[in-house]
Design a protein around this nucleic acid. Structure first.
Length: 256
DNA sequence: ATGGTTGCATCGCAA
């Protein structure tokens, strides 16, 4: 069984790339982030034609997450317990969607960016991660995959030049502590075991991809019962190439 | 050129 995650940066702009990637890599589950549309705008048809089950969560042109699966998606959950609201919003942003597939609880997660260390969005990011960790901890004895764009580079090796990020988000101590919390709960950054080097995101600006100036910020964190079953992983760097690429690439694990 | 892309509710914002 294969579980993948991909920040697609607009599903409508890139549905052809998604279909092509599904055809070539045949994941059993693909979690998407930044779908950037409401469910009524989501291109379900082409996915249903290929036999996939699809659940999508979206409010407007921002954020948005989805789960695409060969097997039925069961016990679907939007958001998670005590998810914080941002600003004066009355409704949770569409950043988390979970479902059970063949006994594995899969989360598609789009962690808030944070914007800057003095921005309310940064405090929102930390409280969002704290609430997620509480839920993740409560189910860590079951097979769980926390997948998605964490918007955190956990180590200095996860950015091309840490000096560039001095005083910026993604590398701050509180963000890294929030990431470490999942590891302390028993979750494993299992892709790192199989793919010790490599980025998952390169900014569109400043020739970041040709220069390989990227960041490793997309993860699949597996609970102990699932970690024991992981037999391989890949980061599909090639998907960043060519016209019309997302700024993130797919990350995938293989489970026995 | 010391640098500047992408997607969208498109001329402003978020990433």
């Amino acid at each position: 069984m294969k579980i993948a995650t991909w920040n697609i940066n607009s599903i409508r702009a890139r549905i052809d790339r998604v279909i092509s990637w599904l055809d070539r890599h045949e994941p059993d589950v693909l979690a998407l982030q930044e779908t950037k549309c409401r469910p009524d705008q989501f291109p379900f048809e082409q996915l249903h034609e290929r036999g996939y089950h699809v659940e999508a969560l979206g409010l407007n042109q921002w954020n948005g997450v989805a789960l695409i699966s060969r097997s039925p998606l069961e016990h679907i959950q939007a958001h998670f317990a005590d998810v914080p609201l941002f600003g004066d919003g009355s409704e949770a942003e569409p950043r988390a969607l979970a479902a059970t597939v063949e006994g594995i609880r899969v989360y598609s997660l789009y962690v808030p960016h944070g914007r800057s260390l003095d921005d309310p969005h940064y405090r929102y990011k930390l409280s969002w991660l704290e609430a997620l960790a509480i839920e993740a901890g409560s189910i860590a004895d079951q097979p769980v995959a926390l997948t998605g764009d964490f918007n955190i580079a956990p180590t200095d090796a996860d950015v091309w030049d840490v000096a560039v990020f001095e005083g910026a988000t993604h590398v701050s101590e509180p963000e890294r502590a929030a990431f470490q919390r999942f590891l302390d709960l028993g979750y494993s950054d299992v892709v790192r075991t199989f793919v010790p080097e490599g980025y998952t995101y390169w900014d569109y600006q400043r020739l970041r991809f040709p220069r390989n100036e990227g960041m490793r910020i997309d993860f699949i964190l597996t609970s102990p019962p699932l970690t024991a079953r992981v037999s391989g992983a890949m980061i599909d760097r090639d998907e960043r190439k060519g016209k019309g690429a997302s700024d993130h690439v797919p990350v995938m694990i293989t489970i026995d």
